[in-house]
Simulated assay, not measured.
Amino acid sequence: MRVLLVLAHPLEESFAAAVAQTARAALQAAGHDVDWLDLYRENFDPRLSAEERRGYFGEDYDISGVAGITSRLQAVDGLILVFPQWWFNFPAILKGFFDRALAPGVAFRPDAAGGRILPQLTNIRHFWALTTTGSPWWIANLYMGNPVRRLLKRGIANFCSKRPRFHMLTLHDMDRATEAKRKAHLQRVERALAALR
């Protein structure tokens, strides 16, 4: 299986980077081909330009600014996102990745009858998120309703692919996580990805 592994964190020494490295090693050990996309290190520009927005629902939407990334998305069986949740949401660079790379004609096609969008990344069978939150489980899930999971699963994954296998692993209360808790989470990530088929 070919997997696009996307890291969205500005610090190379971050726990998110450690999660991404663990994920890459586990995938490669299981025989998968990993395409590594570190949004910060590749200087991805998350800003949707005026031209891109103006032509968003045009007949021939111009993806030239992100063509390299869109071709990578179209060449994989799995998409794995690694990121921290900040303010119960995505880092800005990852939101920009969604806005620019999951573009019309690439990730979806508007239904001519209106109202729906038709998935175009049907090659993606697995959609995973490996993430952390600074909040305890009960705040993220009970109080906030787990907005990141809802957006990823109901919105992005299902609108871009046809019933992908969605999986999300989250380390909660990251700001107070002990070294043992972080290590246990990395082992959880490793075990989960070792079983990916």
Rank of each mutant, 00 (worst) to 15 (best):
L79Q: 10
M144W: 08
L11V: 08
D99C: 05
I80E: 02
L37R: 03
D45L: 09
W36N: 01
A29K: 01
R100Y: 12
H167E: 14
M168N: 12
S64A: 13
A107N: 06
T70S: 04
K162G: 10
Q21M: 08
E59P: 08
L102C: 06
R47A: 14
H9Y: 07
M144L: 03
A157W: 06
L121W: 01
G31S: 06
E190S: 14
A113C: 07
P46R: 08
Y56I: 15
V19S: 07
T122Y: 07
T178A: 15
D99M: 01
R163M: 03
A184I: 02
R149I: 07
T132M: 08
E13L: 05
L171I: 02
K162D: 14
A92D: 09
T178W: 13
A25G: 01
A113F: 01
D175F: 06
R109I: 08
M1G: 08
V82W: 08
P136K: 03
T70V: 09
E179I: 06
F57A: 03
R197E: 15
G105L: 07
Q21G: 01
V189K: 09
R2I: 02
Q28I: 01
V66F: 05
H126V: 14
R53G: 13
R41Q: 15
D77C: 01
W137L: 03
N123D: 08
R191V: 06
R163L: 03
N89A: 15
R163T: 05
A157V: 03
W138Y: 14
V6N: 06
F15M: 14
V3W: 00
F166E: 00
E179C: 03
L102Y: 11
L130M: 07
I69G: 00
A8Y: 11
V106Q: 04
P84Q: 14
A107I: 07
E42G: 06
A177L: 12
W137P: 01
T70H: 04
T22W: 01
F127A: 05
P147G: 11
N43A: 13
L169P: 05
T131K: 04
K181M: 05
F83K: 04
A20Q: 10
I124Q: 06
H9S: 07
C160I: 00
G78F: 00
N141K: 13
R154H: 14
R72V: 02
A67G: 05
P10M: 00
A30W: 01
F108P: 07
G55Y: 03
W86T: 04
D175A: 12
K153R: 14
N89T: 15
P91H: 11
Q28T: 08
